[in-house]
Write a protein that binds this DNA or RNA. Structure first.
Length: 217
DNA sequence: CACCAGGGTGGTT
DNA sequence: AACCACCATGGT
C-alpha cells in the first residue's frame, strides 16, 4: 500500500494546487457545504451568489428571511427545499446561544459534535466545515477517498472510514495539507473512471505508480 | 434518455 | 448494523 504522503505528492504533481475555499467567511462556507451536497460546485456557487445578492448571507438576515425567499435563491441546486430549510435552521441556530464567534472559540471535538447535531450535517459535511470554515485539521472521508483507497489496497474488503482516517492522519495532520488533499482527491476522483472500484489503471497512469500501488503490506 | 454530482435523513429489515 | 427510498435540479 502506498503511503499517504507519497500519494499526496503525486496528486499535487499531477493536478496542481486546487485552492478550495481560500478565504470566505465561515457562514458562507457552511452554507456552501450544505448546498454542495450531491450537487455541483457550479450550481452551489450560483446559489451562494444569489443569497449574497439578496443580502441573506448572514445568520441574522437568513434567520429572518422567508423560507420561500431562500428557496428562490438556491433553486438551481438540487434538493432546494430540504436545503433551504436546513440553511434557515442553521442561521437560526447561529443567532441563538451559538454564533460563528463561539464556534471559532470552541475546541474541535466539541465543535464537531455540535455540527453533527445540526440538520443536514453528517460526518463529511461536519469535517468539511471544520476544515474549510474553521481551519481545523479534519480528515474528510468522502466517496472518492473510499474508492481510491479501495483501489490501492489488495484487500478485497473495503477499508472502514476509521481505518482510512487513521491512514491519512499518520502522515498528514495539518489543516493546509488536509485542505489540499481533499480537493486533490476530488479532482482525481472526477478524472478517473469511477465506475469500477477494481480498476486501478487510471491511478497507475496518472500517478506514475508501477502496479496496484505496489508492494509492501 | 440515463446517469451522476464535493450527502444526509428517516424508515424498514 | 446494513440496506433502502427519498430529496430535485442541471449538466453530459
Amino acid at each position: 500500500m502506498i503511503r499517504i504522503g507519497d500519494l499526496y505528492e503525486r496528486l499535487l504533481a499531477a493536478y496542481g494546487p486546487q485552492h478550495w475555499w481560500p478565504a470566505e467567511k465561515p457562514f458562507e462556507i457552511m452554507a456552501g457545504a450544505l448546498l454542495v451536497q450531491r450537487s455541483t460546485w457550479t450550481s452551489t456557487e450560483a446559489s451562494l451568489a444569489a443569497l449574497k445578492k439578496r443580502g441573506l448571507m448572514t445568520p441574522q438576515a437568513m434567520a429572518a428571511a422567508d423560507l420561500q425567499a431562500i428557496e428562490a435563491c438556491i433553486q438551481g441546486s438540487g434538493f432546494f427545499r430540504s436545503k433551504a430549510a436546513r440553511l434557515k435552521r442553521l442561521a437560526k441556530f447561529l443567532t441563538g446561544s451559538w454564533s460563528v464567534r463561539r464556534m471559532r472559540a470552541t475546541p474541535t471535538p466539541m465543535l464537531r459534535k455540535t455540527l453533527l447535531g445540526l440538520d443536514g450535517v453528517g460526518p463529511e459535511t461536519a469535517d468539511a466545515i471544520l476544515l474549510y470554515a474553521f481551519g481545523r485539521p479534519a480528515v474528510i472521508v468522502d466517496e472518492y477517498l473510499r474508492r481510491l483507497t479501495q483501489r490501492l489496497t489488495a484487500d478485497p474488503e473495503p477499508p472502514t472510514d476509521a481505518a482510512i482516517r487513521r491512514w491519512v492522519e499518520a502522515e498528514i495532520f495539518d489543516a493546509p495539507r488536509l485542505n489540499e488533499l481533499h480537493a486533490l482527491v476530488v479532482a482525481h476522483g472526477k478524472n478517473v473512471c469511477g465506475k469500477t472500484p477494481q480498476c486501478s489503471e487510471c491511478e497507475i497512469r496518472t500517478l506514475c505508480l508501477t502496479g496496484k500501488g505496489a508492494s509492501d503490506s
